[in-house]
Design a protein around this nucleic acid. Structure first.
Length: 306
DNA sequence: GGAATAACCTGGATGC
DNA sequence: TGCATCCAGGTTATTC
């Protein structure tokens, strides 16, 4: 499932291909891919055709492609915002390539150096989406996301917190937010308004690394423990990024359709019944927030109530 | 206002 | 073999 490392791999692959490229044509095959777009498919096609992309940026699991000002919107700044949901893929294909399975939207581009190419948005479970959105200034005047120097962020991403790998991420703000949350630490890690980019896989992995039970109340954690959680979150995200992300099946691939290798490095997620890499006792799986939590009941014990 | 829960969605895996 | 059911989970609307 695309979390921060997977989305960053996609962003890094898209950036050189779309920067400076002109949109020749847009084909919307399934309007369910435009649930976040304010208009219909025809509007999306008309609004994008002829526009020029400036690059590719990302915050958490959201990525966006800023556009050069054009036509009536000379004074406005806009971007195509994308979210991969659970199964979305953004693929680079040669012009005229046959339709991908579950292809929803195709952008035909002309790049000044690379020539013509197609950006294909394919999505099996249709949780992902594309949208044309306005860019607004960031409150802290720092770059809106990784991959862009512009202090701007799409309106649809403005409520999302910065991710732990963002140079502008404020550790003190994160510690303060946790101290006010009575919810379980895993629930807080999945809350994209507190810290972005972490999904079920990396939350389980970071908590395993920090030796914390997923149900531990966030507000009960000491400053030292919160720092340990942050350290583990960053470590697991950076390692996953270096290994190209986590792929269990065909649901996550980079822009060239290749899978990542981080699934081989997992310690907790998806290892139900297998021995813990620290103590050898079996990893357990429990239901949590309509999904699953994987942890070692020996290494990650629930603290006793005060 | 904060926290918890349900709904959205498709296809693979599993059981009968 | 075919059908029904379960499961995966990011985001958001709804409910408490």
């Amino acid at each position: 499932m695309p979390e921060l490392p997977e989305v960053e791999v996609v962003r890094a692959g898209l950036a050189p291909a779309v920067s400076g490229a002109t949109v020749l044509a847009v084909t919307v095959l399934d309007e369910r891919a435009l649930t976040r777009h304010p208009g219909d498919g025809t509007h999306f096609e008309g609004a994008l055709t002829g526009r020029v992309f400036r690059g590719a940026a990302r915050r958490g699991k959201f990525l966006w492609l800023p556009l050069e000002p054009a036509g009536a919107s000379l004074s406005a700044t806009e971007a195509v915002v994308g979210h991969l949901g659970m199964s979305g893929q953004l693929l680079l294909r040669p012009p005229g390539a046959p339709a991908e399975r579950h292809e929803r939207v195709r952008l035909d581009l002309a790049h000044p150096v690379h020539g013509e190419l197609a950006v294909v948005f394919a999505d099996q479970r249709t949780f992902g989406s594309l949208a044309l959105d306005e860019l607004i200034p960031t409150p802290d005047a720092a770059p809106g996301g990784y991959g862009s120097d512009d202090a701007a962020v799409p309106t649809q991403v403005a409520h999302i917190a910065r991710d732990p790998l963002d140079p502008a991420f404020d550790d003190a703000v994160f510690r303060s937010a946790l101290s006010r949350k009575v919810s379980a630490i895993k629930r807080v890690l999945l809350d994209q308004t507190v810290v972005s980019g972490i999904g079920n896989i990396y939350a389980d992995e970071a908590l395993w690394g920090a030796r914390l039970h997923p149900e531990t109340p966030a507000s009960s954690l000491s400053t030292r423990t919160v720092n340990r959680v942050l350290h583990e979150v960053r470590a697991v995200l950076e390692k996953a990024l270096a290994e190209g992300g986590t792929s269990f099946d065909a649901q996550y691939v980079n822009v060239n359709g290749q899978a990542g290798y981080f699934a081989h490095s997992l310690h907790a997620y998806g290892r139900t019944g297998q021995p813990c890499d620290r103590c050898g006792r079996p990893i357990v799986r429990v239901s949590f927030m309509n999904r699953s939590s994987h942890y070692c009941p020996h290494c990650q014990r629930m603290p006793r109530p005060a």
